[in-house]
Nucleic acid binder design. Structure first.
Length: 411
RNA sequence: GGGAGAGUUCCAGAGUGGCCAAAUGGGGCAGACUGUAAAUCUGUUGCGUAUCGCUUCGGUGGUUCGAAUCCACCCUCUCCCA
C-alpha cells in the first residue's frame, strides 16, 4: 500500500490542491514538506500530536519534513476559527517556547542533514527582517483583499471585528511557503484543515511570483462525535510535556475517549497496521474497553516511551480493576512539616495542597457531596484531621470523584 | 473626523438604587445509573476561621444611609456616516 493510500485509509486527508501530483510526489518520497507550529506555549499539545505523526509517516516514506517554528507569525497571531484576539507574546517567550518544541519533536522525527532527515527552521529568521514597503512591493499585488475577506478562516472574525494585524497572518504564512520554496526547496505544505485558506495563499503566491506549482494538503481535524476538538479536558490542553500532563493523565485521557471515537483515534493516531485496526473494528461491544486500552497505551508509548506507558497502564488497571500495587505510579504530593498544625492537617487543606480542589470551599463541597475517599473509605466529615503518623509508609490515598487518585506522603 | 451603542461571574446573557454573590442557558465538578463510554436524572458552581464576614459587574473618582445600577472623566470594542 502506498503512503498516500494509507493516509486516505486512515482518514487523515481533508483537502488537497492537486491529488494526482501530490500522490506521486509523496509516494515517490520526493516531497519536502513543512508544517507550521505556532509557539504560544512552552509545550506541544495532544492537538499537535496528529501533525507529528503525519510528519513521521511521511518521513518513513522517504519525504523530508520541515518543522517550521512560528517565531515570527506567533507575533501576529492566527485568527483562524477564533472569536477573540490572541495575547501578544514577547520575543523572549517565543524563543523559549521554540526551544521546548524542538526537544519534544525529536522524539518523533529524525533531524539531520540527510536527504529525508528533518530540519527545523524558524520564520522569525526571515519575517522579522522584512521591510514593510519592500514586502508590499514584492508580494502585495499577489493578494486580493476581496478574496481574503471571503476566506473561511476570517469568517468568525468578520462578525466580531478583525484587526489589520491579524488580517496579515495569511500573508505572513504565504510568505513563509514562498520563502522556503525558494531557499530550501520546500514544495508542499501540510496543516490542519482550519489552515486551508492560509495555505492556498502560499501556493497562489508561488504560482504568481515564480510561475511554479507548489502543493498543499490539510489534515482532518480530530474532533469527537459531538464535533468538539479533541485534546482538551475542561478547556485545558492535554500536553505532551510530562511535567504539564503526567504520563498517567495522558494515558487516562485516551483511555476515556467516547465509544464513538475510539476507532477513529486508533486509525488516525496510531501506527498499528491497518489490517489489525480493521479487525478491531469488528470487535463486539464487550471489547470496546480493550480497544481503548490499546489506544491509550500506543499513544502514551509514542509520547513518553514504553516504560512510562507500561507504568501508566498498570496504575490504571490497578486503580480501576483492583489488585496489583502499581498504584505507586499515581501522582503524589509530599507534605512539608509546615503544612501541619499541632501535628495534624485538615482534610480540606490537604485537598487544596494536592490540587484536588482549587479552594477549601470547593474541597468542602466535594466532601459534602460524597465525592472524596481516603484510603478507600468515603470521607463525609470536612473537619477530619490527619495526624502526621497517618502518612507513614505508603502514605494516604485520596480519591476525588471516580477517576482522580492522589497519594499523599510526608517529606 | 461625526453620530449611535456596548463592556456583568469560565462562556453566552438577564439585571437599570436596597429583596444581588447577581436570573436563565451552556460548560465544569460531584452523586445516582453504568463499562474508567454515551445518554438521562439530582446536586453544585467567588473566597473565608462560615446561619456570619470579605472581595467581585471595563478603570478611576464622585453622588447616596446604601451603587452592577446614578454622575464625571478615561480605556476597550461594535455599528452607521466620512
Amino acid at each position: 500500500m502506498t503512503i498516500y493510500d494509507e493516509l486516505v485509509a486512515r482518514g487523515l486527508i481533508a483537502q488537497v490542491t492537486d491529488e494526482a501530483e501530490i500522490k506521486e510526489l509523496i509516494n515517490a518520497g520526493k516531497a519536502t514538506f513543512y508544517i507550521g507550529f505556532d509557539c504560544t506555549a512552552d509545550s506541544l499539545t495532544a492537538g499537535h500530536f496528529m501533525a507529528l505523526t503525519l510528519m513521521k509517516r511521511l518521513q518513513m516514506a522517504g519525504n523530508k519534513p520541515i518543522a517550521l517554528i512560528g517565531g515570527g507569525t506567533t507575533m501576529i497571531g492566527d485568527p483562524s476559527g477564533r472569536t477573540d484576539m490572541r495575547k501578544m507574546l514577547t520575543k523572549e517567550d517565543i524563543d523559549h517556547n521554540a526551544e521546548c518544541f524542538k526537544r519534544q519533536m525529536e522524539r518523533f522525527i529524525e533531524f539531520g542533514d540527510g536527504a529525508n532527515q528533518a530540519m527545523m527552521v524558524n520564520n522569525a529568521d526571515w519575517l522579522l527582517k522584512l521591510n514593510y514597503v519592500e514586502l508590499l512591493r514584492e508580494v502585495g499585488a499577489c493578494f486580493s483583499v476581496n478574496n481574503m475577506l471571503r476566506a473561511k478562516c476570517y469568517e468568525q472574525r468578520m462578525e466580531k471585528g478583525l484587526s489589520f494585524l491579524e488580517f496579515n497572518y495569511m500573508i505572513m504564512q504565504s510568505y513563509d511557503f514562498y520563502h522556503m520554496f525558494q531557499t530550501i526547496g520546500c514544495n508542499m505544505q501540510f496543516g490542519g484543515d482550519d489552515q486551508w485558506s492560509n495555505m492556498l495563499g502560499g501556493t497562489e503566491l508561488i504560482r504568481r511570483k515564480l510561475g511554479k506549482d507548489a502543493y498543499a494538503m490539510t489534515i482532518t481535524l480530530l474532533t469527537d462525535s459531538q464535533g468538539n476538538k479533541m485534546g482538551k479536558t475542561a478547556g485545558n490542553a492535554v500536553w505532551l510535556d510530562a511535567n504539564k500532563t503526567s504520563p498517567y493523565d495522558f494515558y487516562q485521557y485516551w483511555r476515556n475517549v467516547g465509544d464513538a471515537d475510539v476507532m477513529k483515534c486508533i486509525r488516525m493516531l496510531t501506527f498499528l497496521p491497518l489490517e489489525q485496526i480493521d479487525e478491531m473494528a469488528t470487535w463486539q461491544n464487550g471489547r470496546i474497553n480493550e480497544a481503548k486500552e490499546i489506544l491509550a497505551f500506543e499513544l502514551t508509548k509514542m509520547v513518553h516511551g514504553e516504560e512510562e506507558a507500561v507504568k501508566a497502564q498498570n496504575a490504571a488497571r490497578a486503580l480501576f480493576s483492583g489488585g496489583g500495587d502499581a498504584a505507586a505510579d499515581m501522582p503524589s504530593t509530599a507534605l512539608a512539616a509546615a503544612d501541619f498544625t499541632d501535628g495534624a492537617i485538615g482534610l480540606l487543606d490537604m485537598m487544596v495542597k494536592c490540587a484536588l480542589a482549587p479552594s477549601k470551599k470547593e474541597a468542602r463541597r466535594l466532601v459534602e457531596q460524597g465525592g472524596v475517599e481516603v484510603n478507600g473509605e468515603r470521607a463525609a466529615d470536612p473537619t477530619t484531621r490527619f495526624a502526621a503518623d497517618a502518612f507513614a509508609g505508603e502514605g494516604l490515598i485520596l480519591k476525588k470523584g471516580k477517576k482522580v487518585f492522589h497519594r499523599v506522603v510526608t517529606e
